[in-house]
Structure formats: structure tokens, C-alpha cells
């Protein structure tokens, strides 16, 4: 069944490619249409005139730059902290015997299914009272808690595959326990940690609900919220092609990460979810 490459498989492959890439190509095409063309209405797929003008104006847009910085900063910090904490948890779950292990996993599971919108009200009310409203930290905290479940599962699944006996074997061979950990365990665990970090980053980068509810200025407003409030030359409507250019710009990091790490991401997604 495997190695056969029938016509149905080829058609299937083309279908997947069209499915996945058509909207991406579409928004790229839109981003090359001059703003005047879309303002007047331009239903054809390809631009009549190709133009870089949207990219120039987006990249020079102060509000958008700030949103990019916010999103990168907040997502990266949340990712690093979340993965660190998740590593501790996953290590404990994968290697140690202790009471309450199931409770930890159940909590993580419950959080993953939590309807985030239902937290918007109370969090907003709490944050404004303690001064976290519209700050980086005010987003980092919820991002961390909502990425932890994903990071914990992915890492637990990876850690269970690690042959921990090798650590003891190295120690028997005369290495100190630190050396054994660094030379043997770290290289084995690193890919898992890295994969968890990518998935966590995607989650934080994608968030919209917290992004619009817990921020209101360029202080902390992340990219998805900035896109939703994009202001163009028309005071009343978002500018189609400039907005598309902004959308393409924020999609580029995702595409680069996916191109480089596709194998790891797939492994991380599926190991955490199915084998776990």
C-alpha cells in the first residue's frame, strides 16, 4: 500500500497543496495590488500593476512596528518561561513517582479546553486593579498558563522516550553527575524542548482574545489585535492591500520556522497528542 504512487495519490497531493497555499497566495497577490486598485474594487486574482508600495508603508508604519516588537517580545518571553516551567513538570511526570501526578495532568487537560473568553471579564477586572492592564506582563502571564498544557504534554512524551539509564551508565564510566547530565541527557532532551518551544511560540503569536481585551494602546498591543484595528487612508474601512501586506509580513516568520523545523513540529504535535 505504501510505496505505490497511483494517480489518486498525485491528485491528492495537488489537492493538499492547493488547499493549503491558495489563500496564502491570494493574500500575497492582494498585498501587491496598489491601494488605489483595491479601493476602486479589484476582484481579479492577480494585481493589474505590481507594487511594493504597501510593504513600504506597512514597514514604516509606527503602530505596526510597535505591534511587531510587542508580539515578538511577549511571545518569546512567554515561550521561554513556559517551556522552563513545563520542563520541570514534564521531568517530574515522566521520571518520578509521586502522588498527584494524575491531578497535574488533569489540570493541564482542563486548561487546554478552557474557554478563554470566559476569563476576559475577571482578568480585565483584576488586571486594572493591580496595574497589569495594557502591559507586557499582563499578557505574558495568561499566555504562559495557556501554553503550559501543550508544552507539558509535548515534553512529557519526549522525556518518556529518553533512555535515562544512559545517565547512570555514564556515571559508572567515571563522569560526574553534572557531566553525565550535560553530555548525555541534554542532547537527548534538547530536540523535545525545542519543539515544545516552537509550538508554544505559535500559540502565543496567534492569540487574539487576550490581545484585544487586555491591551488598548501600542504599549502592549500584539500583532493580531493591531491587524484588527488597522487604520488606512479611508477613516472608515481597513485598507485591503496594505492590511494584506501586514498580514504577509507577520506570516513570514511562521513560514520560515515551518520550513526549517517541519519535521520536528509534526513530531511534536502528534507525539503529544496521540502517543502520549
Amino acid at each position: 500500500m505504501r510505496a505505490k504512487l497511483g494517480p489518486s495519490t498525485i491528485i491528492g497531493m495537488i489537492a493538499i497543496l492547493v488547499w493549503c497555499l491558495l489563500p496564502v497566495v491570494w493574500i500575497i497577490m492582494l498585498s501587491f495590488k496598489p491601494e488605489a486598485e483595491t479601493a476602486a474594487g479589484s476582484p481579479q486574482f492577480l494585481p493589474k500593476d505590481w507594487s511594493w508600495e504597501n510593504y513600504q508603508s506597512v514597514l514604516q508604519d509606527d503602530l505596526f512596528q510597535r505591534a511587531l516588537i510587542n508580539s515578538f517580545g511577549i511571545s518569546l518571553i512567554a515561550t521561554v518561561l513556559s517551556v522552563m516551567i513545563a520542563t520541570l513538570t514534564a521531568y517530574a511526570v515522566a521520571r518520578l513517582e509521586f502522588k498527584g501526578k494524575r491531578v497535574v495532568l488533569s489540570i493541564a487537560l482542563a486548561i487546554a479546553m478552557f474557554p478563554v473568553v470566559s476569563l476576559v471579564g475577571p482578568l480585565f477586572d483584576m488586571w486594572r486593579a493591580v496595574g497589569l492592564y495594557d502591559t507586557w506582563l499582563g499578557l505574558i502571564i495568561p499566555y504562559m498558563s495557556f501554553t503550559l498544557p501543550l508544552a507539558i504534554w509535548t515534553l512529557t512524551a519526549f522525556f518518556r522516550e529518553i533512555p535515562w539509564e544512559m545517565e547512570q551508565a555514564a556515571q559508572v564510566d567515571g563522569a560526574t553527575s553534572w557531566q553525565a547530565f550535560r553530555k548525555v541527557i541534554v542532547p537527548l532532551a534538547a530536540p523535545g524542548v525545542f519543539t515544545a518551544a516552537i509550538l508554544t511560540f505559535f500559540f502565543a503569536w496567534n492569540d487574539f482574545v487576550f490581545g484585544i481585551s487586555l491591551t488598548s494602546t501600542t504599549n502592549a498591543r500584539p500583532v493580531p489585535a493591531a491587524l484588527a484595528f488597522f487604520v488606512g487612508p479611508d477613516q472608515f474601512n481597513p485598507p485591503t492591500s496594505t492590511l494584506s501586506a501586514a498580514a504577509v509580513v507577520v506570516t513570514i516568520p511562521i513560514i520560515i520556522i515551518v520550513l526549517i523545523f517541519q519535521r520536528k513540529i509534526v513530531a511534536g504535535l502528534t507525539s503529544g497528542a496521540v502517543k502520549g
Binding site: E35, A36, S57, D62
Partner: peptide, 20 residues
């Protein structure tokens, strides 16, 4: 539609003008 031509470029100029 002369009014809509090159609006983005104008936006750019405005921002630069502001920064200056």
C-alpha cells in the same frame, strides 16, 4: 479616481514628516 491615487505613499510621507 484621482483622489485615491497613491494614498499609501501620502500616509508614509505624513509619518515621516511627523517623525522629522
Amino acid at each position: 479616481m484621482a483622489a485615491t491615487i497613491d494614498r499609501a505613499a501620502r500616509a508614509r510621507r505624513r509619518r515621516r514628516g511627523l517623525a522629522a
